[in-house]
Design a protein around this nucleic acid. Structure first.
Ligand SMILES: [Mn+2]
Ligand SMILES: [Mn+2]
Ligand SMILES: [Zn+2]
Ligand SMILES: [Zn+2]
Lengths: 133, 133
DNA sequence: TGTATTATTGATAACGAATCTCATTACTGT
DNA sequence: ACAGTAATGAGATTCGTTATCAATAATACA
């Protein structure tokens, strides 16, 4: 049976107190910095579990790293992510869902799923970038 | 200046004679199997170059591995990919392009780009899977 | 409450994709 | 032909992630 440990709870909370997507490594650093002696492997395991259970969203960064975020919405949705600061907006788009489904079936594909992420610079980071040069 | 080598040409050709997306490692294996003594690092470099020059499409597999494919279309497009055999269909969808752009700007995001891939089982692999069980 | 069971943990090793190093090779323009 | 230098490739290295496995601790139950 599944057991409750302070480690899983610590990961859940650290994830929840974070605005955007974070990597397992960075979350582990954060936890360590706050005095938690949690192990890296445990963070990886907890995040994978949370993702399976639907308590966390996960995606691959453009560089191929796995990133996680506390999932607030229960239903299927996508994300608009700031490349600079990680700020994330959850977005729903039935039109895109229908499109993906029909594109697949039109070509005889079954068991279709899709990856839809929008990346950009959030308003704040856009200003900062302009000032920097 | 850029130089022409048989290695780059070999990668271009191997990529072109392949139906779907392939990893650098698998393309390197293929080349080696046909007797080519090309180095792995060279395959990685050639694929990266082809992608920059628009001669190859690239995407991250669901597991985070970089995959490449000879690019036939010049314009921006997306892909419908078979999870089992890699068979790929190029798809255009202006509606999705506009949607991504507007979602970003509605939330004050700039310099938006997007990742849109549809994965599934192609017709042939669907049949094989059904027979297997 | 004590105890047996066993899921979980975590330090470490191992793995795999991708990149870097750098001596050697071989395009290219002259 | 030759000099200049971009490209190559074997091997080392980096880095994210997973596997190992002995130690730990959560849970069920006597
Ligand atoms: Mn969707
Ligand atoms: Mn697009
Ligand atoms: Zn930002
Ligand atoms: Zn297939």
């Amino acid at each position: 049976m599944k057991r409750n440990t302070w480690q899983r709870e610590a990961v859940r909370e650290a994830l929840g107190s974070n605005e955007g997507f974070v990597s397992a490594q960075s979350l582990h650093s954060t936890l360590r910095d706050t005095g938690s002696p949690i192990g890296l492997a445990t963070v990886y395991r907890a995040l994978a579990d949370l993702a399976v259970e639907g308590e966390a969203d996960s995606l691959q960064s453009l560089e191929g790293e796995s990133l996680y975020r506390a999932c607030t919405q229960g239903q299927h949705h996508h994300h608009l992510i700031c490349r600079n600061c990680g700020l994330t907006v959850e977005i729903e788009a039935d039109a895109v869902e229908l499109w993906a489904q029909s594109v697949a079936s039109e070509h005889g594909f079954t068991q279709a799923n899709h990856v839809v992420d929008v990346f950009g610079l959030c308003a704040e980071c856009t200003v900062q970038t302009r000032l920097a040069r």
